[in-house]
Write a protein that binds this DNA or RNA. Structure first.
Lengths: 132, 132
DNA sequence: TTTTACGTTGACGTTAACGTCAACGTAAGT
DNA sequence: ACTTACGTTGACGTTAACGTCAACGTAAAA
């Protein structure tokens, strides 16, 4: 198997972002592609990292937060204190996710309510206009 | 019943934000408190608006997006086209909420996996140290 | 009356997350 | 050799969402 890789514009195209953005993520320490001379070569795992970044963005996370999250995924440098700290971080993340779930549920209820009022208003208009 | 209201610092205190932020939301057209002379007086519904803004923020919405959303909640100026457009907007929101739900689920799976690896690593260390 | 607490309106500063050039290298096609 | 396509590194510009003064008004408390 020949170590498959991607160019920067391939990834940019696939994810609908600019190459500038991708380089920016690298500046911020979120990705570290290999170099073939000057050019960047992105591995499959680099691509996954990009996915994670974008998922984070969709949930309103900052790049710093996403980097933290991504760093959790790799090996973990053994130390017991580090591991316990990592577990704490995980719990913290879980907590914010839970709150987001509640917020989404609330927003869905609100939208549903507006939707119904909206449909009723349309119903009313339909009846009114059929009276003419 | 005496129209109960809040001062700017009361709301700031309650929601853990600054008065500056609240005035900024007003500048951006998200709230419109009454005035008693110079001073702002926030009604219960102004307070609700603030809550909605903050919920939006927790989900990564911009202030402009939150204003759009909040504007959906009030009367709705009758027009049929407007109402249909509103329904479209609602559907669009719902779609992004659904994607967020998927993203959260994915992130929870990831976190769970890291948590387990982390706990296994701790287990291993425990056994190792008990060998001494 | 003077401090203290709270409010007001500018105006400028700041951070995040890029966009937008400029100026250049490289490799392939014609 | 020349263009075309793609890549690179700065450097500066921009927008959102406030923070941080400054300079001032007002009303109650000491």
């Amino acid at each position: 198997m020949t170590e498959q890789h991607f160019t920067i514009s391939e990834l940019a195209g696939e994810f609908g972002i600019t190459t500038r953005a991708i380089r920016f993520y690298e500046e911020k320490g979120l990705i570290n592609p290999r170099r073939a001379g000057q050019q960047r070569h992105y591995s499959a795992s680099d691509r996954v990292r990009l996915k994670l970044i974008l998922r984070g963005k969709r949930l309103g996370f900052t790049l710093d937060e996403s980097r933290d999250l991504i760093e959790m995924y790799d090996p973990g440098h053994g130390n017991v204190e580090q591991l316990n700290l990592l577990l704490k971080k995980i719990d913290a993340r879980e907590a914010t996710l839970q709150r987001q779930l509640r917020d989404i549920a609330g927003m869905q209820r609100d939208l549903q309510e507006v939707r119904q009022r909206c449909q009723q208003a349309l119903e009313t208009q339909r009846k009114q206009s059929s009276k003419l």
